[in-house]
């Protein structure tokens, strides 16, 4: 019984951790959208800032990956 309860908790926790992926998606969208609006205001400066765009996306993306990792750990490693 206790084991089943723990398993239940694991699965619920993994599902909750999955929400983090959605949050990361919001973050990535925010970065990309703001970059685009800035680039449309000043297209000549946009070319030099694509590196910053990718860095920003990577930082936002990484946190989503962390939540995915937590989900995987809960599912398979605990």
């Amino acid at each position: 019984m206790e084991g089943e309860l723990a398993q239940l908790g694991q699965y619920i926790g993994a599902g909750l951790a999955g929400i983090g992926s959605g949050a990361a998606a919001i973050g990535v969208g925010h970065v990309a959208g703001n970059f685009l609006s800035g680039a449309l205001r000043n297209p000549s400066a946009a070319g030099g800032q694509t590196a910053m765009l990718f860095i920003g996306i990577a930082f936002a993306e990484a946190l989503g990956i962390f939540s995915f990792l937590v989900a995987l750990l809960l599912m398979f490693a605990v």
């Binding site: 993306e61 990484a62 990956i65 995915f68 990792l69 995987l72």
Partner: peptide
């Protein structure tokens, strides 16, 4: 930590 997990996690997530 973030440097390695970003790369490894992205690739693992995609394949999984």
């Amino acid at each position: 930590v973030s440097h390695s997990i970003r790369l490894g996690g992205n690739i693992m997530a995609g394949h999984a």
